[in-house]
Simulated scan of single mutants.
Amino acid sequence: MSAVREAIADAARAVTLPEGLAQLTATGYVPDAVTVPCFFPADYTVDYDRAMNRGLDKVELTCQILVGIADDRAAQRLLDNLLSGSGPASLKQAIEAARGAPGQPALGGAADDLHVTRLQGYRWYEHQGTTYLGGQLTINIIGEG
């Protein structure tokens, strides 16, 4: 899972934020300190042995996106762009671009395929004592067990 989380973070870094905004900080691990805007895998579940002889595992990865709240409207506009289904700042679009060509493995070989399936939890979050606006993206990933 370490390679999968790192590859997801690498893919997320491909977003292009509106001019004048800081670049997205993306990490494959839950950070001690957040530099906004920030993306990281926060939680995952694994369904083992979906095919015989450890042939396939299915992972549901929940990723956290946090933005600063100095200006509530600007924060919501930025988060809306990041959580959009398409566009230059879309995390969904950037992450799904790492699926590879048809017949090729996803995430540079770390998985067979992936799909960003859900946005949830658009709300305030506290991380290490600081409040942020954020949301969660769910990514379904399949790969060899």
Rank of each mutant, 00 (worst) to 15 (best):
H115W: 07
D80H: 12
R77H: 11
K58E: 14
T35D: 05
Q93G: 03
D43N: 15
L91F: 07
A94P: 01
R118W: 01
G68P: 10
Y44I: 00
L61I: 15
Q76S: 14
A70G: 13
L66H: 02
E96Q: 15
T117N: 07
L107T: 02
V30S: 04
D72P: 12
R99N: 14
T45A: 08
A74C: 01
Q120C: 08
L61Y: 15
A42K: 14
A51I: 01
A97Q: 14
V36C: 09
F39G: 03
L79C: 14
T35V: 09
A42G: 12
A42M: 13
Y29P: 01
P88W: 06
G28Y: 01
N53D: 10
V30T: 04
D112M: 07
A101D: 14
A74G: 02
A33Y: 02
Y48M: 10
Q104H: 11
G109E: 00
A33V: 02
H115I: 09
L119Y: 13
P102W: 02
A98S: 15
D112V: 11
R73H: 07
A98F: 14
C38P: 08
Q93M: 06
N81H: 06
Y44M: 09
K92M: 08
A70W: 06
Y122G: 03
R73E: 11
A94D: 06
Q64S: 13
K92C: 03
V46P: 00
I65P: 07
A97K: 11
N53R: 11
H115K: 10
Q76D: 15
G85V: 01
G85I: 02
V116R: 06
L61F: 15
S90Y: 05
E60W: 09
P105M: 07
P105C: 06
V34D: 05
A101P: 06
